[in-house]
Each structure stands twice: as C-alpha cells, then as structure tokens.
Amino acid sequence: MPKKRVLVVDDENTIQIVIQSCLEDIAGWEVLLASSGQEGLKLAETEKIDGILLDVSMPQMSGIETLKKLQANVITQHIPVVFLTAKVQSEDRQLFSQLGILGILVKPFNPMNLVNQVADLFAWEV
C-alpha cells in the first residue's frame, strides 16, 4: 500500500510541527506543510495529496474560503478535507457539516491519539 500524503494547512508553526511529527513518525505518512490558504491551494494543485487537514481560522484566507476554492478547482475537488479548529459550537458544527468536509479535528488535540483520529476521519488503515 503506498504511503499516504497529508497536507497540513495551518498558520501556527507549532501545530504544523506536532502534526507532522506524529503522522510521519508513528504512521509513516508523508506530511506537506502550508502556512496559509494560498500556499495550501498551490500545494494541493501541484502535489499528489491523499487528504488535507485545514485550519479554519487563518489570516488573509480562512479555512472556509480555502475549502471553497479547493472544491471549485477540478484538480483539487476530489481531495478529502478535515477541518482543524478550536471552535466547536453547535452552530459551527452545523455549518461545517454543510460544507462537504469529512469531519473536524478539535484543537488542542492529544498527540498520542492523533494518528488514529486522522486515520478514522479519512477511513485509512494504520
């Protein structure tokens, strides 16, 4: 089975490092990093990506705006997306469920459980 490639789009460097370390060291997946929605869109278009972990709250272009651009692009619209967010009010969950994402990974998350959470959300084998 080929190695999974995950794109992490988050403006917080610490979050990027923790996710990258966990997914690469524990699951053996390859992790690409983007610090903005714009950077994430470029990587999603030019790299073969199996799944995207996308921060909702970012400057310049929010995760929701980034998601809509991914969904509107024929090259990237097939890539499954999971939101990374600290906001999980019931009205947010309702909005997120209408956007066509696979799920939500709530920050802060437990690094020890991260691989299993991501694998469950994307329905991947670990």
Rank of each mutant, 00 (worst) to 15 (best):
L54K: 01
Q77P: 00
K48A: 13
K87M: 10
M58Y: 01
S62F: 03
K4T: 02
R5C: 11
V126N: 14
R5N: 14
Q77R: 14
Q71E: 13
K3P: 02
L121V: 13
P2L: 10
V88Q: 08
L54A: 09
K107Q: 11
R5D: 09
A72I: 02
I52A: 04
I52G: 04
T76S: 11
S36A: 11
A34K: 02
F96Q: 01
A86S: 15
A44Y: 06
A44E: 07
K3Y: 04
V126Y: 10
V9A: 08
I79Y: 09
E125W: 00
V31R: 11
D92M: 04
E47R: 06
V18M: 11
S36P: 10
N110A: 12
D11E: 07
V74M: 11
V82H: 00
L99Y: 08
P108S: 05
K4Q: 15
K69I: 12
M61C: 06
V9M: 12
T85H: 02
W124M: 09
P59S: 04
C22E: 14
N73F: 03
I64W: 01
Q89K: 13
Q98K: 14
D55F: 03
I26A: 12
Q98Y: 02
K48V: 01
I26G: 02
V6Q: 08
K4A: 08
Q38V: 14
V106L: 15
Q71G: 08
T85L: 04
S62A: 07
F96D: 01
T76E: 11
V118G: 12
I79T: 03
V115M: 08
P2C: 03
L33N: 11
L67G: 10
Q60E: 15
D11K: 06
L70K: 07
L114G: 07
Q71M: 14
N110S: 08
L41G: 00
L53H: 03
K48N: 14
N73H: 10
D120A: 14
L32N: 12
T14I: 13
C22M: 13
S36R: 06
S57T: 09
K48Q: 12
V18R: 09
